[in-house]
Amino acid sequence: MTAVTNFIARKSGYNINLVGLCSATVILFWAIVALIAPMITPYPVGEIVDWDYFGPSSSAFWLGSDYLGRDVLSRILMGARFTVGISLGAVTLACFIGVTLGMLAAVIGGLFDQVLSRFLDAFNSIPSKLFGLVVVAAVGSSVPVLILTLTAIYAPGSYRFARALAVNINTMDFVTVARARGEGTLYLIKEEILPNIIGPVLADFGLRFVFIVLLLSGLSFLGLGVLPPNADWGALVKENISGLPFAAPAVIYPSFAIASLTISVNMMIDNLPKKIRDRED
């Protein structure tokens, strides 16, 4: 493996470590699964194929059967589409919006900062469950609606954290110098602020990703988003929780799937090549 990392390092000029590479591989694996899932599921995702329930791993059902006797492997493979797709979409949108507004608020300051901050604070204090229910009642449910709802729930937190970081950087001498040079707001946030807060912002991105993966299952139980027979991974864990006392594969493997994805995303962020993570000299 070290040979591989060295090879990539020589070819690309990026210094990559083993943990980062493994994490990237896991993420890539799930991304591919998400794309080709319908082609590789051994059984239809909603079909009851085993008369037993919470069945053990066997040659017919590699990861056992769930609480109804459906094939867990097929359900996890199809679930990857929703968990990976929706979560990545939502977390990217939420962090992009939150961080951009946060930096803008820090750099522009004054009334803009005040109004935006107070507005998002107020928004953030509305319970997310109530918000979810209103969304379903008002516009119905679909995957884009789900992504936007999750974005709306998580963007204010991202804003607050990014703003707190950016405000500190904004008082630094090099920003004052740049401002004195007459640089525009866009230049300031892109060239001076962002590179200096990118580390914590990425860490925040990773955590928010985990939260979204987990919240997703809660929202599908509100009737928002992933519809039967499909289910996201969190929902798979939830619907099979009665199997926990027997350590049923139906509850263990979806948990592994969640952990493998969320840990990989966070480990990859922690182990990004220095060249990307750090402010350029």
């Binding site: 239809p44 909603g46 079909e47 009851i48 109804l68 229910l133 379903v136 009642a137 449910s141 599908s220 509100l222 009737g223 928002l224 519809l227 039967p228 027979p229």
Partner: peptide
């Protein structure tokens, strides 16, 4: 889900919509 699955074997497309209990 059971009815939907049976439908899919004969080309009957049943769109199961789970809505809030609330």
């Amino acid at each position: 889900t059971v009815i939907q699955q049976a439908g899919s074997t004969i080309g009957m497309n049943l769109d199961v919509q789970r809505v809030p209990a609330d």
